[in-house]
């Protein structure tokens, strides 16, 4: 079986390398984005709102109100605070682009596992050798066991590289407002001179609360959740692949199922009618932010109990359970099915 695993790894190494680089590059870039938001934009907004006598939380409410709610949902919900570096960095794990890359990898690879070989006609060359069918499925499990950690570590590595390359996140003080001359209002013969009202001086927003501290080790825990999502998607897709004959058909079905689940999970956070369906999706159990920010490994299924936690369900158990179930179904199907001739 090692021979087959090595061959399968050789087949995917280029694509795997590209995906790893993409994920790492995104995390690196996200560190820069976090640095800019937490170190520059948020202090600027906070400073400006203070000068205008407005509570800075109101500004965030306006920003994330109405259609902006979608943005907040995609970012991970209301618990995410823009001026907290760890909160912002954790968005890098649930960003739609990252989730898309993870899905494309897991589904794309697993869809071709059986149906792709059948479609290309190479499966019969392989299965003509004295190779038990279950070993073929297990070989793909081994490939997942190698590829998934690499993908997870590339996410982590990217964030760590970003922190090394970009340096610590520091607040840049708001520039002193330019002294403007007094205003002169003329209304016919009436002339009123308005002196500079004298806005309050900006207070340096120093990081006294540790909100800008970055703790890379905290991301390590989230990698188990990322791996869980990849394994769940891969397992579910390989079950479809084991039953299918054409790679593109399996790919289409798997992408459709994943997309519907993703949309239900996102829309369900904004639309109460769909909320009860969220726990039925894989993405509901993908909450690395909870692990990064609060070491909370469970989900409460509150959607089925009017917002109150119904039962604490370990997200890793669900994600890895779905993956294992998928592989189990794939084994069951593939060991019993007919292998048709290539078309």
């Amino acid at each position: 079986m090692i021979v087959l695993v090595r061959k399968l790894l050789r087949d995917i190494w280029l694509a795997l390398t590209i995906v790893c680089v993409l994920l790492a590059a995104f995390q690196c870039l996200w560190f820069k984005v976090t640095q800019r938001i937490c170190g520059e934009l948020v202090p600027l907004i906070t400073g400006l709102s203070r000068r205008g006598g407005v509570d800075s939380s109101m500004v965030q409410n306006v920003l994330f109100g109405g259609p902006g709610k979608i943005l907040r949902t995609l970012m991970g919900g209301e618990r995410i605070e823009l001026d907290n570096a760890m909160d912002m960095l954790s968005i890098g794990f649930v960003h739609p682009l990252v989730q898309t890359i993870l899905c494309v990898w897991a589904i794309g690879r697993a869809a071709g596992a059986v149906a792709g070989e059948l479609d290309r006609g190479t499966l019969e060359l392989l299965m003509a050798q004295p190779l038990p069918r279950y070993r073929f499925v297990l070989a793909h499990l081994c490939v997942d066991a190698v590829a998934i950690p690499l993908l997870c570590f590339s996410l982590w590595g990217g964030a760590a590289l970003g922190s090394v390359l970009m340096g610590p996140i520091e607040v840049r003080d708001l520039p002193e407002p330019a002294r403007k001359p007094a205003y002169l209002l003329e209304w016919g013969a009436l002339k009123v001179r308005l002196e500079n009202p004298g806005l309050p001086a900006p207070s340096p927003a120093n990081d006294t609360s540790g909100r800008l501290a970055v703790r890379p080790l905290a991301f390590g825990r989230a990698l188990f959740v990322v791996g869980g999502l990849l394994f769940a998607l891969s397992g579910a897709t390989i079950a479809l692949s084991a039953a299918g004959r054409f790679r593109w058909r399996v790919l289409g079905v798997a992408v459709l199922v994943a997309l519907v689940q993703f949309l239900i999970n996102v829309i369900g956070q904004m639309w109460d009618a769909l909320e009860c369906l969220r726990p039925l999706t894989i993405f509901y159990y993908y909450q690395p932010q909870q692990v990064i920010l609060g070491s909370n490994w469970t989900v409460g299924l509150g959607e089925w109990n009017g917002g109150q936690p119904l039962s604490r369900l370990p997200m890793l158990a669900v994600l890895y359970g779905v993956g294992a179930l998928g592989y189990g179904i794939a084994l069951w199907i593939f060991c019993r099915r007919d292998l048709p001739s290539p078309l």
């Binding site: 006609g121 190479t122 019969e124 060359l125 003509a128 050798q129 004295p130 290539p342």
Partner: peptide, 16 residues
């Protein structure tokens, strides 16, 4: 598996 250990097969529709 025991059967295929004793058999070498050349498929009609060849894909390598």
């Amino acid at each position: 598996v025991a059967v295929r250990r004793r058999v070498a097969y050349l498929p009609g529709e060849l894909r390598l």
